[in-house]
Amino acid sequence: MDNYVNIVKLSVGTETVEGLQAWQAQKRAQTADGLPRHVTRMWPKREAEILAGGSIYWVIKGVILCRQKILRLDEVIGQDGIRRCAIVSEPEMTRVAATLKRPFQGWRYLQAADAPIDLAPGRAAEDAIPPQLNAALAEIGVL
């Protein structure tokens, strides 16, 4: 049994994995040491389980398409004085089997046993499937 838990998060405003990568390449989406981060309002209660090997799985246009290993959780205090959590991850994205995910707010825990499987490294070099086709294929269980 796996002793870690993952997080699943909507990538709002991006259309493709490459779009998410472009966003994370911007300074404002990085930590001081240059790692990608996503700042969220809530601090995960299952922090120890996440840091024991969890990843952040990204939902793009209603489909989980990739993941990044979570390295740490940093405290961020906004200009409003509110404590937030920066989920800091490895820059490398691993593509996963396309899996439909209904819209939700914030983030959700994702058990390791329920996580989409990683695609073979050679599959990342293939031409990207248009998001609508990707969602349709995932819906019928082809991807």
Rank of each mutant, 00 (worst) to 15 (best):
T16F: 12
D33Y: 12
L35T: 00
A25C: 00
E15T: 00
R28W: 13
D33K: 15
V39Y: 02
L10A: 12
T40H: 08
L10M: 15
A22R: 13
T16G: 06
T14M: 13
G13D: 14
T40M: 09
G34V: 00
E15N: 02
Q26H: 12
E18V: 07
L20D: 01
Q21M: 15
V17W: 07
A22V: 05
G34Y: 07
T14C: 14
K27D: 15
G13F: 10
P36C: 06
R37H: 07
L35V: 11
G34T: 01
V17N: 08
G34F: 03
E15P: 08
A32Y: 08
W23C: 00
V39R: 04
G13Y: 12
D33L: 11
S11R: 01
T16M: 12
T40P: 07
G13Q: 12
G19Y: 10
R37A: 03
Q30N: 07
H38D: 02
L10K: 14
G34C: 04
L35D: 00
V17T: 03
G34M: 01
S11E: 11
T14N: 12
S11K: 08
Q30R: 14
W23S: 04
A32I: 13
W23T: 02
G19W: 07
K27C: 10
G34K: 03
H38Q: 11
A22D: 08
G19P: 00
R37Q: 13
G19S: 01
Q26I: 08
T16E: 10
A22E: 11
H38F: 08
Q30L: 10
G13M: 10
A22Y: 09
Q21R: 15
T31S: 04
T16K: 08
K9N: 08
P36F: 02
T16V: 01
K27V: 15
E15V: 05
T40R: 10
R28P: 03
G19H: 00
H38W: 10
E18A: 15
S11W: 00
K27M: 14
